[in-house]
Write a protein that binds this DNA or RNA. Structure first.
Lengths: 416, 416
DNA sequence: CGGTTTCGGTTAATGCTTTGAACTAAGTCA
DNA sequence: TGACTTAGTTCAAAGCATTAACCGAAACCG
């Protein structure tokens, strides 16, 4: 009861954010709140600057409706992507329009936490500066890391690829900045970005399948990211699809990643091509070369054909186990493969999934680029704002304003 | 919010039901409600007969606490299990103590919906009669079917094994009985039973893996059954674990079910045994014979060893994708295999799962027998009662009582 | 053995929040 | 211009949880 108002504000705000501009009337209908309450709460939020009017809609005999939206300029969010080779930091307004961006290469693929910390703080300051945004209006910093992130305040990170074992990244960042910090796994933030702004829009059950050098997945169940008991759910890459099959770098045999991860594909190509690897300086161009060669080279075509089969088996597993509305294929290798042969992948999935769940799912490509990891990270503070109804911030502002303006004022408005 | 009271009653009731007898004080602490509210709400529920006192607990200097529990006799629930060979109907009180049971063989393995309907209604009447329970105190009938059940009011059932395609079992039952009817998939109800009363007690993230002739799973995520977009999530049996492997009855190749389903195991034994099948009239005794022969027969030992490996691969997939606290292995074949070689199965799972999620999960056997499917079905109306805080029923009773006793009374108590 | 302490539980007053209904605002249409 | 529609606001009323003061039942202690 003590936070029913918060809950109602959250419902309203979330609706407004996700379902575009809406009138008070529509909001009342879709949230099952009375018009009076909507008017009341919206009025409060307009007063705080959280919500703003966004034009009218003509009516056929009747007062025209005033459309409302979450004010993009109410605050700003920063998203950061800690990759193996670089740290990317980007600033957005609340409508997720990008305003500034900073990128830092890392000295090694296993950077010290302190180095990453410096880059993050640098980037944070830099993008805020360059966008000309008041630091006090930055609602939060979301950080995406490619590893398992414990869902605690300290945000302890376990990232084998970075060589991090139990790094409390959240706690470390909080020591050096007052801006609220949220940390999550990169695949999950990318999934969130696709869910909100990409190929997953409008769905409540989505699996975002990511294929790059490694293979992972981000599962959204009933609108919320599925984490499991210790936040490491969705480790799709090490699903066994070929019993007693190829060795995988995880130590097991027959993992999906060993077959459809970029490394695995290129290795299969090398073997099929009498030991000669695909041309290209890095994995990305090598894979592109294989794909480009497919129309003319039987070897390349065979390798890709097999890849579609293996990928289909893996996607079929996702379809059967999660019964999603939509599977979104992403990751740089996933996009390359999907762009070249999505029909074959769909067909292979159909062969490996049960008819009914397969028929209920669509398989599509990611719509946002790989930079969406940072954007997804930036959605973390936005999600926080929405689920909170903006109450925490309003209270903080009222408290600060009250403290400065009227020293002896006991408890202004919502500051209790 | 117009039903905050309902929500609070639900929280209290659920807590009381799941965490055994508790005092008002403990309830207040664990639910974050004030003591006054707890007193108030509990008082109301005691008045309705929903909650009752259950003894004291001595204190060391202070008033002794009065323990409370959900009154087992407040109402009764009926659970039914529609299997391929029989319909089982069982009546329980709210503490899930079995009070009466009825079982009907079915005329064929693909029974007409009408035949099943008759048996269910017969069984319902029979168990209520024999337990000597007032039909008006029966809170609901839960029905478990081995197929996909749409989660709508009509409860449309798609069950290939029964030959049912789009049978609105819920709607059909409702035509012939006033008792609230709930229908769900059998694996999910068994999972629910294990979660509440069996090996899953106290966990919020559990996967119940069921191995019989077929193979399935019931996933519990954050305390609630995970259903996916169309309620068919958890189809573990048709996960590909051996690419291009054995043909499965689903039409695909390399499904887990083809390797660790009873049929698959016995087929592999037959092949390893130069075409001679395992002795036994049915699958169950044949599998038992293979297991019994393992210490002396190399063939049998090899087949079971392989089975543990395949099963481990399948369980590893579950561990990686769902990151559960606990995996509960059940189903008649699962129990037989697990009883004989759980350590080998655990070890195989460790080989196929990632270290971290594997370390976070325990693998155990089902504690409840196969009859628990009916019990799980009976938990469906209980869950309904708990999530409702018992308000709907209290209102109905008050309404009926008011209507009979005082004809002109406008709206007694909660009947609005 | 009676007072004191301590903890469990209840009661009355208070304040917050939603809501329903009346009411105002801003249009269209005849 | 006036009837009619639809959107949004205001205000009194009702429902709830909470705070804080207040009983009750035991053990401890001098």
């Amino acid at each position: 009861m003590r936070d029913v108002r918060r809950a109602n504000r959250a419902v309203l705000l979330t609706h407004l954010y996700r379902s575009g501009p809406l009138s008070r009337h529509e909001l009342a209908q879709s949230t099952a709140l009375s018009q009076a309450s909507v008017s009341n709460l919206i009025g409060e939020m307009i007063g705080e600057g959280l919500v703003e009017e966004a034009g009218f809609v003509e009516s056929d005999g009747g007062r025209p409706r005033v459309l409302l939206r979450v004010a993009p300029g109410y605050g700003y969010v920063v998203g950061a992507d800690v990759g193996e080779t670089r740290v990317q930091v980007e600033l957005f307004d609340l409508s997720m329009a990008p305003l500034a961006k900073a990128e830092y290469p890392l000295s090694s693929t296993t950077p010290k936490p302190d180095e990453v910390l410096d880059r993050l703080l640098d980037g944070l300051g830099s993008v805020v500066d360059r966008a000309g945004v008041d630091p006090a209006t930055v609602l939060g910093l979301g950080v995406a890391v490619s590893g398992v992130v414990e869902r605690t305040r300290d945000a302890v990170v376990h990232a084998q690829t970075l060589g991090w074992e139990g790094v409390p990244l959240g706690a470390m960042l909080r020591r050096d900045t007052d801006i609220p910090v949220l940390v999550d796994n990169g695949a999950k933030t990318l999934g969130q970005a696709e869910l909100w702004f990409g190929a997953g829009r409008g769905s409540r059950h989505v699996v975002v399948a990511l294929v790059g050098s490694g293979v992972g997945a981000s599962v959204v169940a009933d609108g919320a990211s599925y984490r499991g008991s210790h936040s490491s759910a969705g480790e799709w890459g090490h699903t066994t699809i070929a019993y007693d099959g190829c060795a995988c770098r995880c130590g097991a045999h027959g993992c999906l990643e060993a077959y459809v991860g970029a490394e695995g594909i290129l290795e299969r190509y090398r073997q099929a091509n009498r030991g000669r690897p695909a041309p290209g300086a890095d994995e990305e161009s090598a894979l592109a070369a294989v794909i480009a060669a497919a129309p003319t080279s039987k070897t390349a075509a065979k390798v890709l054909d097999d890849t579609a089969g293996y990928l289909g088996a893996g996607l079929g597993t996702l379809v059967n186990l999660f019964n999603p509305e939509r599977i979104v294929l992403g990751g740089w290798a996933g996009l390359a493969l999907g762009g070249a042969m999505l029909p074959a992948i769909r067909e292979a999935t159909a062969r490996h999934a049960l008819r009914q769940p397969y028929a209920q799912a669509t398989i599509e490509l990611c719509e946002l680029g790989p930079d969406a990891v940072a954007m997804g990270a930036a959605t973390l503070p936005v999600a926080e704002l929405l689920s909170d109804g903006g109450i925490a911030r309003a209270a903080a502002l009222a408290g600060a304003g009250g403290g400065a303006g009227r020293a002896a004022c006991p408890t202004p408005a919502r500051a209790r």
